[in-house]
Design a protein around this nucleic acid. Sequence first.
DNA 1: GATGAATGAGACTTCATTCAT
DNA 2: AATGAATGAAGTCTCATTCAT
Lengths: 214, 214, 214, 214
Amino acid sequence: MPRVTDAYRESKRRQILDASIECFAREGFHRTSMAQIIAEAGVSAGTIYLYFDSKEQIVEAIAEERHALESVLAATALANPDTRQALHDLADGYLNWLSDPIEQKRRRVTVQVWAEALRSDRVASIVRDGVAQRQQIADFIRERQQQGHLVAGLDPDAVSRVMLSLVLGFVLQQAWDAAIDVDGYRSVLNEIIDRLLLAEPTRGRVDHGRPPKR
Amino acid sequence: MPRVTDAYRESKRRQILDASIECFAREGFHRTSMAQIIAEAGVSAGTIYLYFDSKEQIVEAIAEERHALESVLAATALANPDTRQALHDLADGYLNWLSDPIEQKRRRVTVQVWAEALRSDRVASIVRDGVAQRQQIADFIRERQQQGHLVAGLDPDAVSRVMLSLVLGFVLQQAWDAAIDVDGYRSVLNEIIDRLLLAEPTRGRVDHGRPPKR
Amino acid sequence: MPRVTDAYRESKRRQILDASIECFAREGFHRTSMAQIIAEAGVSAGTIYLYFDSKEQIVEAIAEERHALESVLAATALANPDTRQALHDLADGYLNWLSDPIEQKRRRVTVQVWAEALRSDRVASIVRDGVAQRQQIADFIRERQQQGHLVAGLDPDAVSRVMLSLVLGFVLQQAWDAAIDVDGYRSVLNEIIDRLLLAEPTRGRVDHGRPPKR
Amino acid sequence: MPRVTDAYRESKRRQILDASIECFAREGFHRTSMAQIIAEAGVSAGTIYLYFDSKEQIVEAIAEERHALESVLAATALANPDTRQALHDLADGYLNWLSDPIEQKRRRVTVQVWAEALRSDRVASIVRDGVAQRQQIADFIRERQQQGHLVAGLDPDAVSRVMLSLVLGFVLQQAWDAAIDVDGYRSVLNEIIDRLLLAEPTRGRVDHGRPPKR
DNA sequence: GATGAATGAGACTTCATTCAT
DNA sequence: AATGAATGAAGTCTCATTCAT
């Protein structure tokens, strides 16, 4: 069956990747044997190695794919000149994507990629690149702060880290418990966004209970 | 009457666990062989099996230990009647703990435990138990909302999830990049806490740039 | 009527054999994969199997080719009625051939063929046939002994084996170290030939140092 | 079965090496699978790797062993002050050793080691070291030439190469055909030695047949 | 005739665990 | 209690060969 089209190759590659994701989501990278991937993909051992150099490389390909998808979201949402809307869209975009049931299985793999990044330099750099979109958010924060649309005084970099945490943490919690209440999470996220948009600091405006006596 | 004292057994167990954490932090659970743990711990293969039934069980023991430590923090901080202070103390407590360099190596293991929870029911239930302290936070939020110390209208459960995310996300980011700016992160965290303490919703109070025309 | 000419087939066959020799000389039979031969020859996997039934058969074809070349030498040299000259020509012929740089790479393959002969009956019989030219030398020795041109009393068969050894040993040593001094080797060879031509035994004619006292 | 004696370890190692030699002699290095060695040695797969790092290393160990044995011969024989006797002893020593039926199987492995030396740097250096004993012979020749016990005018290095060839060639021929006539070979060897001991060159002393007319 | 993607048996090696000492 | 040599199932990957195109 020589000289196949690129589309054919791509579909075969997809087939292997999908089978791998299926297995990885079920059993984890390390508990998944090539034999399982082979069975799931319905191809022979040799064929897999025609498309990937090693099991490790399959993991990397999946990691890359994951993060490629993510970075699109930020770019489009943050283009909105309405600062509040931009941030809400970003949050909504992520949460909608994350709650897509089709994606949930894949997200289990993402969590494993995160752990794998601690061990594999290659995966680490993929994760680092993926997470680098955080810089877009930091830039956005900085810019909108200068325009007076966002409360000043907060380190844009730190804000972006906090926002990243809100996504990462959601992914983790959802991976552990798929029944997580997305809408509630979204509400709190939006509330945080709105409140961080305030120009004035608000500290001390409400009674926080009995103040410590020291 | 035991042939060895409990203290002896305990110290040997620690020795094995510490060696395992060292190896796991370096190479990950699955890439760490018993032989490596054996070398690191300076005990024999047979001895390890006198203290643990399997490699899996070592992982579980470490997972358990991790989460046992964490749950103390929440309980003490949240006892403070000053709501704002309680939450700040909670955030500070976590961040201080997390930035303890001694703990940083161990946290790499924590991230792997999170991934492992997707595969092992046993680890999953340990993680679930550990994360169950979130309930304490939710309860705290609910109670203080009723007392009027916290803005109403937000689902306490969702708020607690958000707060948990802020911790999980920090741990991840720090595991990937130990040089993360803790103080900046802390400031933003505290700012969020303060602003969430506001009794009044703040939506629309500031100019968010050119509003969308729809 | 063949679809392609014999010349075409032959050139393609050569191309494959040359590529194989190249690879075999570099990596050995067993470490050379068909993929390497395919790459070196610039043909497809399928094509190779149009010309050879198996990798094994390529080895055999090369072994055959090697020994076919060798057997010509002996025949021509030994036709010379001048016994001494015939033997010198034989030695020179071999050594000249063996020191031809183009042939040196191929000789590395010869050494492997020798080893392979221990395993493959087919290769063994090829080597045996190739080495059978030794019989020509034995016959030559016997004949010239009877004519009084060569010292009597030596088993012609054994002499031929010794002469074969001198060639085999040279090939081996040269395969291990291409910088071997050919001319020195040739001198000694010729000296041996000359001295074996002596009609008289020479034992005891020179002082061999202090004789053992037993 | 912990803490075994060195003797135990050594015997186990021998067991594995002997099984390997058996298999290698039968099938060659590359056609012998670890499974075959395992079966022949009667140990488990894991055990083999307790004694050797790889299949390759077994080959190297065998190569080393082969050549270690050989180098003893030369040293003892050449110590004899009677030059003629020394060389005869050397030749006899080798041939006796080589015709020992127990050793014949092992010699089939030696031939493969020679071929392997073309591919593996490690094996190559072992062969080179083993063959380096040739230097002892060259030194011996040089020294005895100076003492007038050996005909001068021949390069000692070349003579030693010729002598090495006589051994290598015998090994090869015997590996191909175990029925080789050792005594005949020995006679010719000794005759060559005797004749090379002559102080006077002998060229031209006998009639070599009809001289070429040029 | 030529191609080269596909095959799948089988290769080497690892490693968690056991158990005789 | 402690040891560590031994185990052997299972893992990843290779590669000679085939066959639809």
